[in-house]
């Protein structure tokens, strides 16, 4: 809903994921699970109920053996910049677009669990908590004190590790700085990525790595035609991967779920 409250802010956080670098290892997902206090159920094979804020989609070029290729599309919350689909539909204002940072947040203690936002989001970035959060005996010790686990019956999603922004800001404040340096605030997924495929930073800072990367010729966003203006960009030099990011009339769907 940025058109309603575009304010003079120097910050707008975004992410660039280089799909040519991504090997689909899932370190981003695990790092996110650990950072954001996700519980794990004994059976997580029902992927439509398995909560992973950073989900890695596997796509194939659809060619038969031996010309097959697979690629991976890690998908955090897109933090849509234009008329954020989930924000306007929430009946209780449990989700919010922060005009100062561009981050779309979710207030877990406010959410009534109606799941209207789940339906509104075309990216499947929103997850409903179908179960009570439980940790096996002793494993609760690994809970990150900066993040509240979510109770059953509410919707949750990637927050761009918003708590890390608060920490970075606190640190900068103590050091007498107002602005954060590029790389001072990064998400857990970007921090973990072994191939360095994920870059995170302030898109409004022209010197930041993300601001430069989004100008790359291979840059694209998922489902751009819908007009949601995601703040997560992808890079690829392979046309079939770029094409798998959006629907195109008359095109044979090259990318299929693998």
């Amino acid at each position: 809903m940025s058109e309603h409250h575009e304010v003079a802010s120097k910050e707008k956080y975004g992410m660039v994921i280089d799909l040519d670098k991504c090997t689909g290892c899932g370190a981003c997902t695990v790092s996110c699970l650990s950072e954001n206090n996700h519980y794990v159920r004994e059976d997580e094979s029902d992927k439509l109920r398995s909560v992973a804020w950073m989900k890695v989609y596997k796509v194939t070029n659809g060619e038969p053996f031996p010309n097959t290729k697979v690629a991976f599309i890690p998908r955090p919350c897109m933090h849509c910049d234009h008329h954020t689909p989930c924000v306007s539909v929430c009946p209780v204002m449990a989700t919010d677009y922060n005009p100062l940072t561009g981050i779309v947040s979710q207030i877990y203690t406010r959410c009534i669990g109606c799941r209207y936002c789940v339906g509104a989001c075309p990216y499947h970035a929103r997850y409903f908590n179908w179960w009570d959060p439980v940790w096996p005996e002793g494993m609760h010790k690994l809970l990150n004190p900066d993040m509240s686990p979510r109770m059953r019956g509410v919707v949750e999603k990637c927050s761009f590790c918003n708590h890390r922004l608060q920490k970075a800001k606190d640190k900068a404040y103590v050091e007498g700085r107002r602005d954060l340096k590029d790389g001072e605030y990064v998400t857990a997924c970007a921090e973990a990525c072994p191939t360095r495929a994920i870059t995170f930073g302030n898109m409004k800072d022209p010197e930041s790595a993300v601001a430069k990367l989004i100008k790359s010729p291979g840059a694209f966003r998922l489902l751009e035609k819908l007009g949601t203006q995601p703040k997560v960009y992808y890079l690829s030099n392979e046309s079939w991967i770029r094409e798998s990011g959006d629907n195109a009339l008359g095109r044979k769907k090259t990318a299929r779920p693998a």
């Binding site: 290892c25 695990v30 650990s34 004190p145 072994p194």
Partner: peptide, 29 residues
């Protein structure tokens, strides 16, 4: 222990980490 991240100063991985390494606390606990 609440988190395992890659150590950016280590010459082998320079801050990156694999899914197994990132999940190491679940071995501990």
């Amino acid at each position: 222990a609440v988190k395992i991240a890659g150590n950016p100063d280590h010459p082998v991985n320079r801050g990156g980490i694999c899914p197994l390494g990132a999940a190491g606390l679940q071995l501990l606990y």
